[in-house]
């Protein structure tokens, strides 16, 4: 069991950037096809990062590079803890700490665009945090344990117990993955109100580090999606992968069919969805437990 855990942690640390980059490559290709364009090559995200790595470094603020490296390290730690099968609640706490360092990296530059982007990032964190915490609580109620290893190897199919939590989690993925209706902190398409928001002042290597951290994070989030489907049955892994691909496709579809909303609306919609899907699911689970 222990060697199995070590292998999955090492595999995550080595493979996650490649998987994350490939997923983004597919993302850009599929988005282009949805817009009736040919789109960039599949490996384009890797070309971008390598290019950024080789560009001249213009230091905006020394604190920025430090904060970004810490952000990357914490996100890698989040995923590593997850694949080591430890406490899922702890994973999300480490992830939030990482996100705070991203905030520091953005405000360190003291440019108006990146500061506004950073403030919006904080609002985004506030928006998705309830759904994330509830997701952890849901796993606990269904499985009686916060440990990823226990959840992934139990006999129960979690999605049957936690459909509401799953809906809320997928909903906040749009925020976490910086997809269109909720990409308030880093507008990811060109020429928009915030230039590039949070990442405006991150040039060359810093942007590459940010990008790689995003890949690690996306792989971790997708693994959480998979956790809803994976149990002791080996075939459930296939179900997990199918679910991950379906969720990713859904995110791309949402990204391409919606316009960005203001943060108030984002907060309202997300909390309403969280309350009604995860909250109701929580009540039902509690009643079952009592009954």
């Amino acid at each position: 069991m222990n060697t199995y855990r070590i292998i999955s942690v090492v595999a995550y640390i080595i493979l996650a950037p490649f998987i994350g980059g490939l997923l983004e490559g597919f993302d850009r290709k599929i988005s282009a096809r949805m817009q009736r364009r040919v789109g960039p090559p599949l490996l384009q995200p890797f070309y971008d990062v390598i290019k950024l790595w080789k560009k001249q470094i213009i230091v905006v603020s020394r604190a920025q590079a430090f904060a970004l490296i810490t952000y990357l390290a914490l996100i890698v730690l989040t995923g590593a803890m997850f694949f080591a099968g430890t406490d899922i609640l702890m994973c999300f706490f480490v992830m939030s700490t990482g996100a705070t360092f991203l905030y520091f990296a953005a405000v360190a530059a003291s440019s108006p665009y990146s500061t506004i982007g950073a403030n919006r990032e904080l609002i985004q964190m506030m928006t998705y945090e309830p759904a994330v915490l509830l997701a952890c609580v849901g796993f606990y109620l269904a499985e009686g344990s916060f440990n990823v290893a226990d959840i992934a190897t139990s006999n129960k199919l979690d999605i049957l117990y936690l459909p509401g939590f799953f809906v809320a989690f997928v909903f906040i993925l749009t925020i976490k993955m910086r997809k269109s209706p909720f990409d308030t902190s880093t507008s990811h398409h060109m020429h928009q109100e915030l230039v590039k928001g949070l990442t405006t002042e991150m040039g060359s290597r810093n942007l590459a580090v940010f990008q790689i951290a995003e890949w690690y994070e996306n792989v971790f989030l997708m693994a959480v999606v998979g956790l809803y489907f994976i149990n002791s049955n080996p075939y459930s892994i296939i179900a997990g992968v199918v679910a991950i691909l379906a969720v990713y496709f859904l995110e791309i579809l949402i990204d391409n069919t919606s316009a960005r909303v203001k943060w108030e609306l984002m907060l309202k919609i997300t909390w309403i969805v969280t309350f009604f899907s995860a909250g109701v699911n929580l009540l039902v689970l509690m009643l079952i437990r009592l009954g």
């Binding site: 364009r37 789109g39 290019k51 560009k55 060109m190 230039v195 991150m202």
Partner: peptide, 21 residues
């Protein structure tokens, strides 16, 4: 636009000098 689609060559219109080549 889809007609010419420069993203085929990996070209992105950034709008940010710090990211531009």
């Amino acid at each position: 636009t889809p007609m010419y689609d420069v993203e085929r060559f990996g070209i992105i219109n950034t709008g940010n000098p710090k990211h531009a080549d």
